[in-house]
Design a protein around this nucleic acid. Sequence first.
DNA 1: TCAAAAGTAGACAGGTCAGTCTACTTGCAG
DNA 2: CTGCAAGTAGACTGACCTGTCTACTTTTGA
Lengths: 187, 187
Amino acid sequence: MIRAPRGRQLKEHIAAVAASLFYAEGINRVGVDRVADKAGVTKRTLYHHFPSKDELVAEALRAAPNVLFPIEGSPVDRICGAFEALVSFLTETAYRGCPYIIFSAELTDRSHPARQLIERQLLKRRKWFETRLQEAEARDPAALAEELDVLFDGALAAGTKRGTLEPVIAATRTAKRLLQIECGSLR
Amino acid sequence: MIRAPRGRQLKEHIAAVAASLFYAEGINRVGVDRVADKAGVTKRTLYHHFPSKDELVAEALRAAPNVLFPIEGSPVDRICGAFEALVSFLTETAYRGCPYIIFSAELTDRSHPARQLIERQLLKRRKWFETRLQEAEARDPAALAEELDVLFDGALAAGTKRGTLEPVIAATRTAKRLLQIECGSLR
DNA sequence: TCAAAAGTAGACAGGTCAGTCTACTTGCAG
DNA sequence: CTGCAAGTAGACTGACCTGTCTACTTTTGA
């Protein structure tokens, strides 16, 4: 029960606490009472900031940790960097797998507000790959972006089921091979 | 409420019904009452066959649909066939993604009986790839098996979040590229 | 300074869930 | 034909869940 700041900061604090709990134990297994408790607020306050648990879930997903995509370097370097960033992402905090996958698996209702958020994020990632590949003048940016995206999902999904970094390392290796084939020299 | 056969067959019937419900709507959102209802049995009968819901989940996972790995052809053909089999696997039934991923995401408790089953299955798949690659005299079977395995996970995971076959097709393309690099000629 | 906004404390309604229990019926094997 | 296992029907317990509510206190900004 740590006293938290008020207003917008408190809302973000609640969302962050919710994110870690939902992620670690599952959305359906964590009640709003527990989120409120751990955030050091009452349920009344939680419902003051969020109209429903569904909205809290959506906000929590937004607050979930995410892989940072490199913003500097050549396009190909940036793509490689995205895969390498996965390793550090997975080692920090108790990793259970991609939050998007975990949340998707529990949110079977496709109209859930969090689901729409997930779909938007995934499209964004695929487009990011595609733009980088266009910059690198790859032969078929859209097709290759899809391949890299699947690979990325695989690396994250494998972590959901296993607990080691080997899959991520393997995915990075494959990504570099693909880039070498389609974009010529690496760095 | 379809009258079902008795004994062992009834147990399998309940497990199959449970599998489809858990898969489609999530383990935590489907109660044993609903499983019993849809299976056309009473809860009393369900608990006669399964000591607890956890055990029912484990049995349901065992009864879940799975990708069939080719048993004929050259090692490389069989690996390609495994990826191609994914497409038909994903088109049949309402696909929501890899059952292992979905179940794993909900079963946060690592000591859950179903989790151990999942880990055994995944190891089996990876070893299957490795054995095929050894037969095909690949340079580094273990490393390449890991890469193919990640790719396979990616294809399945992408389906958990999206609903199209594009990721699977992309994964198959990547797999063939990897095999071409590491095992020489394809067929 | 002082009213409105934001917060605390905790009870409560109405629902669902896992799992148990009693009493009764059906089918099968010896 | 008869005894037992397997099944039906459905009530019940205790726990937990979301969301609401009343009454009170603290903070903040105009």
